[in-house]
Amino acid sequence: MRLLIVIPAYNEEESLPALLDECRAASADLPCDVDVVVVDDDSTDATAAIAEAKGVRVLKLCRNLGIGGAVQAGLRLAHREAFDFAVQIDGDGQHPPHEIARLLARTKEAEVPDLVVGSRRLELRGHQTTSARLAGQAWLRFWLRLICRLRVTDPTSGFRLYGPRALHIFQDTYPYDFPEPEALAVASAVRLRVVEEPVAMRARQGGRSSISGFKSLYYMVKVTLAVALAFVRNVRRHAMVAASAAGQQLEIRQGEHKVNNG
């Protein structure tokens, strides 16, 4: 079994060295072959150079794509190189790499999940977010349940494990800007099996959050719209793909029937 740890990073030179050391230590304890890729989102600091010096794989994006574009680049790499799973962890050190084992353990279940979301709300362990963000999360939980019939406790968590089906879907369709809740809507629309696993998170170890002040309001409005649009769009696409596959199967069966009778 092969696992790719995808670390999207934009100006994370402060937190990256310690995070990569932790990844190395955590990888040794995982029951699979592990590769680490840092996706440098056109940083203006030494993020890419630090990652290269640490001996991990580095995807250097030639323009800033935002968190979604950076994550998708990593997922694309995982899909093209036939990794079985990919884990996304933030470059700011919020997601402790030793918790990857918990996400990975869920793939041993009889019904293998396509997407495992690390949730800080299930057991309330580790660093919890501000009350304003909690209110935003509550709204997104309600909205995802209303629109997508999806029950999650931590819709904004970026600590996620993607299985082969999720990699197949997301390497092609992944939201670019504030992607986490929208990606859940896509997952629900295309009937991926989404589960949550309690994890402990930390406060960011360096850098600055991209969502603050007026941008928070924009974030809420944009994500609310995006979730609804992504769900409707992908439900339709999924239905079309399913109908096309059913049509192809019917043609094959008819062809076989003709061959058998002819």
Partner: peptide
């Protein structure tokens, strides 16, 4: 941009 980064790597 993503494809270019993957190919470069």
């Amino acid at each position: 941009t993503q494809d270019l980064a993957i190919l470069e790597e």
